[in-house]
């Protein structure tokens, strides 16, 4: 029997007036995964995360976390009791000291882990007496992460956790997340537009574009299944539409035809050979290429 997903959205929609932020998003985040939610700025990532936390109300479809309705006020509180969150702006109470905000937050969580709190205070070298407003962006991120990780949460929702940080702190933050997940049983769902960090720590990913999920799967599977077939012709590349399933995008430029596919490499090669190309190369693709091919518009 398959375990129920920790996060599940079905045909999730959100409109702000005429602007459709989400247009039927379907997500399934399995328990225990580090799930990357990749998309360009304005793709609908933050709106999705806010719906999961009850900060934004959907206009259609539904969102469930731990099997609970994210839109109902009572269940939303229960969801937040089991969820750690780091917002994109690392929004915290600026006038509190690090120690005060830790004490303040701990009071809301019966499963607060003082051991983890102490561990991360030491690991991140956070100045307990310093006010949050006087901290650097990197330090702020670490405080936000400490508060999220020490809650004894089952789910960690991170909205662009490394945005605006220097590479050394990005690495430190990512390592802390991975190490935490390795030692505690939890699920991480994080949004990002940094492909490298999703590639580095996530085991599953959804690429969102224009409010819809355009690619979903385990990163290993994507690497395994996605291929680019590069065809070179004697003269102008033919205008052709491949019939094989799994074609993501075809680009034609001069004598070359480049086909990105998500499955069925053999069938596409078969079709391609019928066009009499001079050469056929099958090339593995990176997550970055998949992302760019799926979220950029056709020329």
């Amino acid at each position: 029997m398959t375990e129920p997903p920790i996060v599940e959205t079905t045909e999730l929609r959100k409109s702000y007036g005429a602007l459709e932020a989400l247009r039927g998003l379907n997500l399934r985040v399995p328990a225990g995964s580090i799930y990357g939610f990749l998309g360009r700025n304005g793709a609908g990532k933050t709106t999705t995360l806010k719906i999961l936390l009850g900060m934004v109300r959907p206009t259609g479809g539904n969102a469930r976390v731990f099997g609970l309705d994210a839109d109902a006020p009572e269940t939303s509180v229960a969801i937040r009791r089991r969820t750690g969150f780091v917002s994109e702006d690392k929004d915290l109470f600026d006038t509190m000291t690090v120690e005060e905000i830790v004490r303040f937050t701990a009071a809301f969580y019966p499963r607060w882990r003082s051991d983890l709190e102490q561990r991360y205070l030491r690991k991140f070298e956070l100045p307990a007496e310093k006010k949050v407003k006087d901290l650097s962006r990197g330090m702020r991120t670490k405080v936000a992460l400490l508060l999220a990780l020490s809650r004894g949460a089952d789910l960690l929702i991170l909205d662009e956790p490394t945005s605006g940080l220097d590479p050394a702190i990005v690495e430190e933050v990512l390592q802390a997340i991975v190490a935490h997940v390795a030692s505690e049983e939890m699920t991480v769902f994080f949004s990002s537009h940094q492909i490298a960090e999703v590639d580095q720590i996530a085991d599953r990913v959804t690429i969102i574009d224009g409010g819809r999920g355009v690619v979903e799967g385990a990163i290993e599977d994507l690497r395994e299944n996605y291929r680019r077939i590069h065809l070179v012709f004697d003269g102008e590349a033919p205008k052709t539409a491949f019939r094989a399933p799994g074609i993501v995008r075809t680009r034609r430029k001069g004598r070359t035809l480049s086909v990105l596919l998500s499955a069925g490499t053999e069938r596409v090669i078969e079709e391609a050979r019928a066009l009499n190309p001079v050469s056929v190369d099958v090339i593995p693709v990176t997550l970055k290429e998949i992302f760019l091919e799926t979220v950029t518009k056709e020329d």
Partner: peptide, 16 residues
């Protein structure tokens, strides 16, 4: 609220 609004909303407390 100049700071902490989203943080407050992420806590397990109803808006009411």
């Amino acid at each position: 609220q100049r700071s902490g609004g989203l943080f407050m909303l992420s806590l397990p407390v109803s808006r009411k």
